[in-house]
Computed example of a mutant assay.
Amino acid sequence: MIQAAGLSYFPIAFIARMPFAMMVVGVMTLVVAARGSIALGGLTSAAVGLGTALLGPVLGMAVDRFGQRSVVLVAAIGNSLALLAFAWAAFAPVPDIALLGVAFLIGATAPQVSPLSRSRMVGIIQTRLPLRVRAKTLNGTMAYESAADEIVFVFGPVIVGLLATTLNPAAPIIGAALLTLVFTTAFAFHKSSRAVDGHAGAVVDRAPLRELLRAPMLVVVLGVLGMGLFFGAMLTALIAFMGEVAQAEEAGVLYGVMGIGSAILALSVAAFSTRFSLRARWLVFSSALVAGAIVATFATTIPIMILALALAGIGVGPTLVTAYALVAARTPRGRSATAMTIAGSAITVGQASASAIVGLIAEGSGAQLALLTPLCAAVVVFGAGVANWVISSRQPTR
């Protein structure tokens, strides 16, 4: 893959996805600091998620039609401008509704480098690599992509916290705008985009959109949505928990316990035997996610919470790898970018909505009640895995 995509691709694509992981938390942090309202902060985070949910798949459809280069470039410019406008509007004498509108634009213009990177990698595997190595390379590539996502989704909030406390509450949003303008533009113009852009223009018999609404695809999207809910619920509940037992600012360090183990295990998926089927992996590793969430509900001290996060980390990475591998396998012809952006949007929607809801729960009822919400999210992931097992037995994944 390094030879086929180019060595420079991987660091560019990695840094280019960082702003996406900083947006939801950065928006909430800035609003709380500038306007003094946790409720408004939660609403603006939800507005970002809503914009991504409504316009993210549209961006994917545009990529399938016109190619990644032009669509990603336009999105990068628009997203940078929206982020800078939000950094100004948060402190400006503008009404809250205007702030929500700009937050919606941030989500709507998000370039979604992560799902488009997966789509680009799948295109390269299908067009440039020998048939005998495609299945193994796809498995390893999805493992790398999920590990990269894990790292940015865990350390994105940490970077937001560091910039907000050491510089200014607006610094994370301004930093995300600059990263988007530089690295997302580099991602758009990278030579690897030619592999999928040329193919996109050549697809005449593109499958109808209704093919994406079939049960085998919808159940995977539900599982990915559950993972986004888990990310948002766990981080917000952890902040509330640390605010009661220590200092809320230390939550990001503890959250890294889950992310580091998850990233390592996500990479290890490439070494799994093919006899360990995708549907079995989903059930096994989502069970670890549920177990970690159960331990978190009983956490009253930091060591117990560390145990819960480490146990949950066993499940997070491999479950995401499995879900995206199923998305790649079940994508209808000519709809790769659309399918991947739908899955990527599901994570953001889950994270944003859970952050808003759990924040209100924590503020009104305390950390112990908030710590029940990651368990609810983990059950959604496990339930989707059970449904996938039933569907897969009826219609084997190609």
Rank of each mutant, 00 (worst) to 15 (best):
Y144L: 15
P157H: 03
V284A: 12
S287T: 14
L213W: 05
V295K: 03
I294K: 04
S37M: 08
H199G: 00
A248S: 15
V48M: 10
G256M: 09
E145L: 07
P111A: 09
W282R: 02
A143Q: 13
L289Q: 09
P57A: 08
E249D: 15
V158M: 14
I314Y: 03
G123R: 04
H190F: 10
G51W: 06
V32K: 06
G223Y: 12
S117C: 05
F183H: 10
V257A: 15
S192L: 08
A202E: 14
L84A: 13
S80H: 07
S192F: 10
L43H: 05
F230T: 08
A346G: 11
P111H: 08
M340A: 12
L30M: 15
I302R: 07
G359C: 03
I357V: 15
T166P: 03
M258D: 10
Q351W: 00
R194V: 12
E249L: 12
A207W: 05
A248D: 13
F10Y: 14
I174R: 05
L218I: 14
G156N: 07
V133C: 07
A323C: 12
A13D: 11
V154W: 02
R279P: 00
A143D: 14
A89E: 06
M258T: 12
T348G: 06
A237H: 09
T322E: 12
G366M: 02
I304E: 11
L371T: 05
V27W: 07
A62R: 12
G252C: 02
V196A: 12
H190Q: 14
A98D: 00
P172Y: 01
T331N: 02
V224F: 07
R128A: 15
R132F: 07
G226K: 08
A323K: 01
R194A: 15
A108E: 03
L55R: 04
S392K: 00
V358I: 10
A266L: 07
M1K: 03
F10S: 11
L129T: 08
L99I: 13
A293S: 15
V290F: 01
I2Q: 09
A188T: 01
I361H: 00
V160C: 08
A293Y: 00
S392I: 00
F104M: 01
G292T: 04
R210S: 15
A270I: 02
V72W: 08
M227W: 08
G41Q: 07
A75P: 07
V219P: 01
M234F: 05
F20I: 15
I347G: 03
L375D: 03
I260W: 02
A202C: 02
L167F: 14
M1G: 06
A164H: 04
P95L: 00
S114E: 12
N168K: 11
R65S: 13
